[in-house]
């Protein structure tokens, strides 16, 4: 039987062919990347171009929503978003960090830990609108917290809880065992080791997760719509700080509100094209905020990685 001789020529052909597939594969990857990058740019430029006339008008940032598109502004949405985020952070950060610490540092390997882990991973995949239904059925009608800033903050806190738990776990896991042994070797007990050494070392990683989580919460509209966030809010909630004693006022927690993604959704859903301009302008503000937060998180992580090397 004739065997194929391996000649210099046939090898060269194979190598050339391999190189061609390599080039094709790399091009596919780069192409996808370019398309993705271009789209990100396109989304932003489209919004910027469509919303420009409102963006450059200072009234847009200081006015309340209005029936007349040319006078409508986002002040109530900006204030609403800020206050809702405050509630979200105050609830989600301690709860998420504590749960992450428990799973990484304390949990024994047993069915209960398994259950909690499956649960957290599943919660991360539950559609955000389902959290909205939870809030509607449990908070608004069950606990009677109504359609308020408190309800929205609580709902979004639950939504980003898995993000913070996972980030905390990863940050804590990346801390070398050396550091723990050093602490225990000095006589620290578990809580001292965690509080004085593990947690401070994990802080940048946790911070990254918190920022990414809050950025996500800022952009979320669906779960806030279901709790019936009104979209025409021509007033501001009571200020959290006041001049008279006791200086801090919690009335704002029970105030009706709107947030930026809802305001944008509301405007984009109107048939009149004039409102779409407002929607685009709101979208720019929203994108700048969330992208800036995500960029900050990426920056912290990169700096952290450089420090660890």
């Amino acid at each position: 039987m004739a065997t194929t001789d391996i000649t210099h020529d046939s090898l060269a052909r194979i190598i050339a062919a391999n190189r061609r597939t390599d080039v094709v594969m790399a091009s596919i990857g780069i192409l996808v990347l370019m398309v993705a990058g271009t789209l990100l740019g396109a989304v932003f430029i489209d919004l910027l171009a469509s919303g420009w006339e409102r963006l450059v008008n200072p009234d847009f940032y200081t006015n309340f929503p209005s029936r007349r598109p040319a006078q409508a502004g986002i002040i109530s949405a900006v204030v609403g978003t800020s206050l809702v985020m405050l509630v979200t952070a105050v609830i989600a950060v301690p709860l998420g960090v504590a749960a992450g610490l428990y799973l990484e540092e304390y949990a024994a390997k047993n069915w209960l830990t398994d259950l909690i882990e499956i649960n957290v991973s599943n919660l991360a995949g539950v559609p955000s609108i389902i959290y909205g239904l939870l809030a509607l059925g449990l908070f608004v009608y069950g606990f009677g917290t109504g359609e308020t800033i408190l309800t929205a903050g609580l709902t979004l806190a639950l939504l980003i809880l898995p993000v913070i738990i996972v980030a905390t776990r990863e940050a804590v896991r990346s801390i070398p065992q050396d550091l723990r042994e050093a602490a225990y070797g000095l006589g620290a007990d578990k809580w001292q080791t965690v509080r004085l050494y593990v947690l401070p070392a994990a802080r940048p990683g946790i911070l990254t997760g918190v920022i990414v989580g809050l950025a996500r919460a800022i952009g979320e509209a669906a779960p806030v719509i279901t709790i019936g966030a009104l979209t025409f809010i021509a007033f501001l909630p009571p200020a959290p700080l006041q001049i008279e004693s006791p200086f801090i006022n919690f009335d704002w927690l029970t105030s009706p509100f709107t947030v930026m993604p809802i305001q944008m959704f509301n405007w984009v859903s109107r048939p009149q094209a004039e409102f779409h301009i407002n929607a685009a302008a709101t979208g720019v503000v929203l994108m700048v905020m969330t992208l800036a937060m995500n960029a900050l998180a990426i920056y912290i992580r990169l700096r952290l990685r450089r420090l660890q090397r």
Partner: peptide
């Protein structure tokens, strides 16, 4: 360099994507 770009894409609010789908 690419991973952060992907994270930025993931960070765009969905309502913005909705606007983009409908009006662009």
């Amino acid at each position: 360099a690419v991973k952060p770009l992907l994270e930025l894409l993931e960070g765009v609010p969905t309502v913005v994507y909705g606007f983009f789908a409908l009006l662009f």
